[in-house]
C-alpha cells in the first residue's frame, strides 16, 4: 500500500468577486476607513472632545498638544472637534448629492439607451453640453446662481454628477438591450418599464456602483473646494473646505489650521478611490487576475 497522501482538493471554481476584490486589500482598507469616518462623523457629539464652535480667548492659535491634538484656531476653537463636525457636512453633502445624481442620471440614461431615436439624441446632446463644462466650474456657476446653502450645495453637486451617470447608464443599456434575454422578456409580454428597470438595470448596476464610489470622492472634493472659495455652507458651520479656508488667513502662524482638515479630505479621497478601484477590479472581467 502506498502511503502517498491524497492530493489536496483543487478548487476549480473561479474565485468569487469578493475574493478577487479583497485580494489586494485595497477595497477592504478603503471600506474600513470610510466606515470609521462615517462612525466618527455620526457620533461627533460623543467623539469630539470640545464643542466645535466654543471659543476660548485664552487658547488662540495654540499648536498641537495633548489638550488640543490638532491645535486651536484664531478664535481658540478646537481644530480636531471642528474637523470631526466638519466630516458630517462633507460626508453628508457627498453622499446625498452622489445618490441624487446616481438615481436621476441612471434612470435617464437607461431610458435614453433603451428607447434610442429622438429621445436618445436629445438626451445625449444635453449631456454633452453639460459635460463640456469642467465639473467644478459647473458647480460654481450653479451655487452662484442658487446661492450658498446646504440644500443648494447638494443640488448643484448632484447636477454636476448627473451627466456622467447618464452616459455610463446609457452606454451599458445600449449593450444590454441587444442581449437575448431582453428579446425573451418581450416574448413574454413584458412592458418597457419592466424590462428597463427590472431586467436591464440590475445588469448595469455594477458599472454604476463603481462609478458612484469614484464620484463620491469627486462630490466631497467639490464640496470642499466650493467651501474653500467661500461658496459652501455659510460659516460658522464647520466644513472641511471651510476650515482650510479659515486657516489660510493665519497659515504662517499656525500650519495645523489648514493641514489637518486637508489631511482629512485626503484620507477620504484615498479611501474612496481604493473602494472604487477594488470594485472595478472585482467586476471587470478584463482586469488582471
Amino acid at each position: 500500500m502506498s502511503d502517498v497522501a491524497a492530493p489536496a482538493p483543487v478548487s476549480l471554481a473561479a474565485p468569487s468577486a469578493w475574493r478577487r476584490a479583497t485580494r489586494s486589500g485595497g477595497l477592504a482598507l478603503g471600506l474600513v476607513l470610510v466606515v470609521v469616518l462615517i462612525l466618527v462623523a455620526a457620533l461627533a457629539k460623543w467623539v469630539a472632545p470640545y464643542d466645535p464652535d466654543a471659543q476660548d480667548v485664552m487658547m488662540v492659535l495654540e499648536g498641537p498638544a495633548s489638550a488640543h491634538w490638532f491645535g486651536t484656531d484664531a478664535f481658540g476653537r478646537d481644530v480636531l472637534s471642528r474637523v470631526i463636525w466638519g466630516a458630517r457636512i462633507s460626508l453628508f453633502v457627498g453622499f446625498v448629492a452622489t445618490l441624487a445624481g446616481v438615481v436621476f442620471g441612471t434612470v435617464v440614461g437607461v431610458i435614453s439607451g433603451y428607447y434610442g431615436g429622438k429621445i436618445d439624441k436629445a438626451i445625449t446632446a444635453a449631456t454633452d453640453v453639460l459635460l463640456s463644462f469642467p465639473q467644478l466650474i459647473m458647480g460654481l456657476m450653479l451655487v452662484a446662481v442658487l446661492g450658498p446653502s446646504l440644500r443648494n450645495l447638494i443640488l448643484a453637486i448632484a447636477i454636476t454628477a448627473i451627466p456622467a451617470f447618464i452616459r455610463v447608464a446609457r452606454g451599458s443599456t445600449l449593450a444590454m438591450k441587444e442581449r437575448d434575454f431582453v428579446d425573451a422578456c418581450r416574448a413574454l409580454g413584458y412592458g418597457d418599464l419592466r424590462i428597463m428597470f427590472l431586467h436591464i438595470l440590475p445588469n448595469i448596476m455594477d458599472e454604476v456602483v463603481v462609478m458612484a464610489s469614484l464620484w463620491l470622492a469627486t462630490a466631497i472634493r467639490t464640496e470642499s473646494t466650493l467651501a474653500f472659495i467661500g461658496l459652501g455652507v455659510p460659516p460658522p458651520t464647520a466644513t472641511w473646505g471651510g476650515i482650510v479656508r479659515e486657516g489660510f488667513d493665519n497659515l504662517l502662524d499656525g500650519w495645523w489650521l489648514s493641514v489637518f482638515p486637508s489631511l482629512a479630505i485626503l484620507l477620504v479621497m484615498i479611501a474612496l478611490n481604493l473602494i472604487g478601484d477594488g470594485l472595478r477590479d472585482a467586476t471587470d472581467p478584463r482586469a488582471p487576475q
Partner: peptide, 19 residues
C-alpha cells in the same frame, strides 16, 4: 405574448437574465 402565445429561443445560455 407570454399568456396565450409563448416562445422559446435558440440560445438558452443567454436568454435568461443572468442577475
Amino acid at each position: 405574448r407570454g399568456d396565450r402565445i409563448g416562445m422559446i429561443f435558440q440560445e438558452p445560455m443567454t436568454s435568461l437574465n443572468p442577475v
